[in-house]
Design a protein around this nucleic acid. Structure first.
Lengths: 212, 212
DNA sequence: TAGATTGTTAATCGATTAACAATC
DNA sequence: TAGATTGTTAATCGATTAACAATC
């Protein structure tokens, strides 16, 4: 059973957890019952040592001579990631990207409940996208204190991003999944920003395909 | 002037370059002429040492006692990233996400020329999205050898991703900007995959907002 | 010139890998 | 039991930070 062991788990470890989770999910779906760190490492292209070292940050999930139970380890990592918490999430900005996420992204698989979307356009207010109600942003002051979403997905124009983040932080939101390609900041306690910087990502690809 | 110095630049350095590029672009737009590593470091929340160490992988861009010319350094980093190369790019899969990227993402700012988009649906073939022609995927065998795109954006269903990657690699594509949340691989030489794993990103945010 | 700041070398820190005793 | 594999400690490797001579 998962019990926090290390005080400070490094970012490198945390960023590897979702990948472990994906691989274990895959193995589970394919019917695998057990796996050893060496076999998993080979599959993932990393060392068995790293897997064992990473897992040891959170507890002891294996058994000598046997390895790990796939489904058990999968669930433990899910728990570590908070997948079992049913975090609540809202989308702010229902343009192409916001709509794409609402329609295609499996929030449930990551343990999130998508409760509503918000947009400045009065034309969108009252509509639904894939069963998710779209409200006017003026409703935020009523909705957020009542529903206490944990995370806001920011898929709105850059120019409005920081101001909207401040507004939502004031209303109690503590997590931001930021697609605006702008760096946001806040003095407030316990606020977390996770940036998805498309441009940065494409530029690293550009670097790697550039002949030199 | 930028000349390659180090043989192997670490991934950590490469992933910081786009961020330098963004900050310098910003400073340039705001009219800054010069900047020192210490002032830039303070702005970015990193050490001056790291900036100087990173840049030293590629050449000598500063001047003792003065610092760096903002516009010059910006252009040098752009060159390192390949922004000046006018790489050609195509989008494969014109669903919500593909459409969102075509309509909203500034490929030009990253030095990419978006030449066409492809989809399996006959309904979309012949249409245009934001001025970009949409062709049927059957046209790939004609189009790719003729236009030699450097990168393919994969915004199609997971189930078709690896097969499409293999097909495009066979036609000569060497870079993949992969939004399918599935890990792709290839034995072929010089093929590069850059993954944008939405789920992984959200799960790390989930971890960080989870109370424990 | 004097002050500032670079590029680089050396020191430190942290992350990855290897090794192995413990044990299922 | 013997073989396999863990969790952890120790060794190695790489990345970050500090220090400083060179010099604009």
């Amino acid at each position: 059973m998962y019990t926090m062991k290390k005080q400070n788990v490094s970012d490198a470890v945390i960023r590897r957890l979702p990948r472990y989770y994906r691989y274990l999910d895959d193995l589970h779906l394919k019917g695998s019952i057990r796996i050893s760190s060496s076999v998993l490492g080979e599959k993932m292209g990393i060392t068995a040592s790293q897997i064992r070292q990473d897992l040891s940050c959170f507890g002891e999930f294996g058994q000598q001579g046997y390895g790990y139970n796939v489904d058990e380890l999968r669930r433990e990592i899910g728990r570590i990631l908070g997948v079992d918490k049913s975090h609540r999430i809202i989308v702010v900005g229902v343009g192409n990207l916001g709509r794409a996420l609402i329609q295609n992204f499996h929030f449930n698989d990551a343990g999130f409940l998508l409760e509503a979307a918000f947009d400045v356009s009065p034309d969108l207010a009252g509509a639904e996208v894939a069963g998710v109600p779209v409200l006017n942003v003026t409703e935020l002051e009523r909705f957020v204190p009542a529903h206490k979403p944990d995370v806001a997905v920011l898929t709105l124009p850059q120019s409005a991003a920081q101001q909207m983040a401040d507004r939502l932080i004031g209303l109690g939101v503590r997590g931001f999944w930021n697609f605006t390609n702008v760096e946001l900041s806040s003095q407030a306690e316990n606020v977390r920003f996770e940036d998805v910087h498309f441009a940065d990502s494409l530029l690293t690809l550009s670097y790697r395909i550039t002949e030199r």
